[in-house]
Nucleic acid binder design. Structure first.
Lengths: 462, 462
DNA sequence: AAATTTGTCTATTTACATTTC
DNA sequence: GGAAATGTAAATAGACAAATT
């Protein structure tokens, strides 16, 4: 029996365990899950200490721990030894980032789509391929890895400042998300911890949840990961690695400084971290800083997706991994995908090796610059982070309006944008901000229209 | 201290725990893993009972259980309450089924490739697409699911005897392996059990291992799953579902009888099982039997991959799922793939809706029939299971030669085939047999050459 | 058919590490 | 800076269930 009566001590959660034959820990976990889903427990709520709950329910602490662990693994809770257990901030936020139904006639400024236009080169190449005699294997399996494809991959990676030393470290995935999923499946275990920026691409949050990986936000100094916070995460949370996007971080568009890149590379070597460097935007940079993978090549897997910078339909990402992880990663990719499409691989390789990819990139940069000039002009006076070559901008909101509220208000006005809550990790309340995908609308007219709606909305808030 | 001295009682495994600060259970698990990898513990070996080991090591039984569980999850062990723990039969067999390096000049009769030729229709369609005005979205993201693609999927599923009642139950994956991975990631948890035939497609074994799912072989009656064995697996192993391939099962090519289909459908409904029906070969059947999914539509996810029957490079599989699993499955697919390639989706839909797919199928059937006639003729006198429309045949070997040995002997003679050990699940020694992929060689001449080598080898064995 | 063997699961004990105050 | 609060992980005890003999 519980020793004390708790009626005088307010507890944030007083579950009533059903008298059932079910195991205590599953019953408790389900209660917790239900109460979070129903809204009875709001994001940020501090749960009672495990010992107090155990006492209240007259069960053992470890039984509570076990129930909490189940919910933690699902991303519902985040706990810190010494401070307590909290309901995660982003539990009820979808990580599916898909454009609104076009029938709704929303102006799409949410989803990270590149401009639709620049694809003439791809079509030319495809036509040429189909006219060739040897095209008979274009629709066959792509098992026999033609060295040409690895050459193309190496070429692009070199262009970004990586040195490809061994082709066995080069692998293919069906896009960046697919590459991340394979890394999680093949190199991580459920329950492993991965350090990330406090605001990250929602796809990572979703993939981490799917594979039971805990994201640990690393506190920032000057807008990027801080050394002391990173060391603390290694020591206290036992993070296995880091996910980083040094070039044009999604969603803030921050370009990581060289000193921070060096710091991360050194820390990874000291603490034997597994770095996942997402170079999805790196091809946009005219003069990119050295990737972290070049500073810590034995500790970093570099992802180069062609979806955002080249063509989404290629569904292709190149991976470069240190050899010690190559076998496990190759297996995971094989068991998730079996193979790549020979047709798409071939288009990508020809685009790269023919040099037409550079023209396409230049076109993308031109298009983005035009759109970003529009955004800067129309929203002048507001803080719009990001460079002219970015697919999206990060709009800081006037105090008093959360990202979530702003997203809702925009939606009422026929505009899709994504509030900062969608990118937030852990229990912290995110800064009020929203991501504006300037390249997503089909036409610049539509973009202009959307930006004016945004401006009016912002004006009305301040 | 241990009560007895064990020196007089032979134990199959006498590990020596290192004096380390590491947790006991991890240390023990690693020892076990090393001894299996090194060959000190051979497949099939029965390990000492957990209590005996615990006593010997002077630790608790549960600590041994925990160590064993780690290895079990990796597929190294299989244990049965009451009988003991055994080293799995297939631990050291790769589940990567990839053709030999072509430089080795092997004749490829191992990998399940369809014939290379029939793709003229696809090229015609692709050329037409590229000539159209509206082709501007072909290289863009495919988020806006054009209803046309779901129409095409529904058309093919209907053709196989399924009734598509709700388009929300229709989903897309990057091929059959990718669909399976998404089902495992989204609907299963690590440690869940899945019933399968005693011999299965190695891709399933690999994916199951990747996601920590235990495969439970269901004993057969008359060459297919038996009711009593299935019930036993439900009751004793607590299997969550079944993976089945009723049409031309890989590798045995067995076509499941209608009564067995009914039995599985009924059992799934009684025991609330999650059925995964792989229809990868179903389009080959001229008059297919009703799929299990049509008999138990609320309990069955049907997979229709286009890789083997249509074109491998399309990397496309259609999934039909009961609505209760649709959301979780869609999320898993999203977080693993983000999206499909619009280009490939479009080719597939046009092939289907234009009716050209039927021509292509007919061509595949013709080609397969020709190759299978060759095989039947050259290997007459030997048991070669499978129908004329199959991509591969299942060769029963003379007694005394295991599949593994036969695979090695073939390889010495410049021939790739896959022995039955690659398909075996659990601790049973597989029947001596090998899979002969008659459609894999580029030319029929090469096939003929390969078959003659096989015949000579077989003759020399009997 | 009953007793025994054997694996599995839940809940607990205990030690420990970090944060907070 | 030390004590208290708080979460975590390992090892254990004991009940249970299936298979064997």
């Amino acid at each position: 029996m519980p020793v004390n009566s708790f009626e005088n001590y307010p507890m944030s959660w007083k579950p009533v365990l059903p008298r059932s034959s079910r195991p205590l820990y599953t019953a408790l976990a389900e209660l917790l899950q239900r109460d979070i889903a129903s809204g009875a427990l709001l994001p940020g709520t501090k749960l009672p200490p495990q010992r107090e709950l155990a006492d209240f329910l007259d069960i053992n602490v470890s039984t509570v721990t076990r129930a909490f662990k189940i919910c933690s693994d699902k991303g519902l809770l985040s706990s810190v030894t010494g401070s307590g257990t909290f309901v995660s901030y982003d539990v009820n936020t979808s990580t599916l980032i898909i454009p609104e139904n076009p029938a709704a006639h929303h102006i799409e400024l949410g989803s990270m789509m590149p401009e639709t236009i620049p694809q003439a080169d791809a079509i030319t190449i495809l036509l040429k391929m189909l006219a060739e005699e040897e095209c008979k294997n274009l629709f066959q399996y792509s098992y026999q890895e033609e060295p040409r494809h690895k050459e193309a991959a190496a070429h692009l990676l070199n262009r970004l400042g990586l040195s490809v030393t061994d082709p066995r470290g080069l692998l293919f995935a069906n896009g960046g998300q697919n590459a991340t999923a394979a890394i999680f499946a093949g190199l991580f275990h459920s329950g492993d911890k991965l350090g990330v920026d406090p605001l990250v691409y929602p796809g990572i949050k979703g993939a981490a949840k799917l594979f039971g990986i805990h994201l640990v936000p690393i506190r920032q100094e000057n807008g990027e990961m801080g050394r002391s916070a990173l060391l603390a995460a290694c020591k206290n949370d036992g993070i296995k690695g880091l996910y980083i996007m040094p070039d044009y971080q999604n969603p803030t568009n921050h370009i990581m400084t060289l000193s921070c890149r060096r710091m991360i590379a050194e820390t990874a070597q000291e603490r034997d971290l597994l770095l996942i460097e997402d170079g999805i935007n790196s091809l946009f940079a005219a003069n990119p800083l050295p990737p972290v993978a070049s500073l810590a090549p034995e500790h970093c897997i570099f992802l180069l997706s062609l979806s955002k910078t080249v063509l989404p339909a290629l569904r292709l990402a190149y991976l470069q991994t240190p050899l010690r992880w190559a076998a496990a990663l190759e297996q995971a990719l094989y068991h998730i995908n079996l193979s790549q499409s020979s047709l798409l691989l071939e288009i990508a390789s020809r685009l790269t090796l023919s040099g037409r990819l550079e023209h396409l990139l230049a076109e993308r940069r031109r298009g983005a610059a035009l759109r970003n000039r529009l955004a800067d002009k129309i929203l002048s006076g507001y803080t719009l982070l990001g460079a002219p070559e970015c697919l999206s901008r990060w709009l800081l909101l006037p105090e008093g309006t959360s990202g979530q509220e702003f997203e809702a208000m925009s939606s009422e006005r026929g505009l899709s944008v994504y509030g900062s809550h969608r990118f937030a990790v852990g229990k912290e309340i995110p800064v009020p901000a929203a991501r504006i995908a300037v390249c997503a609308p089909e036409t610049t007219e539509e973009l202009e229209q959307g930006l004016h709606i945004l401006k009016d909305l912002l004006d009305s808030l301040s």
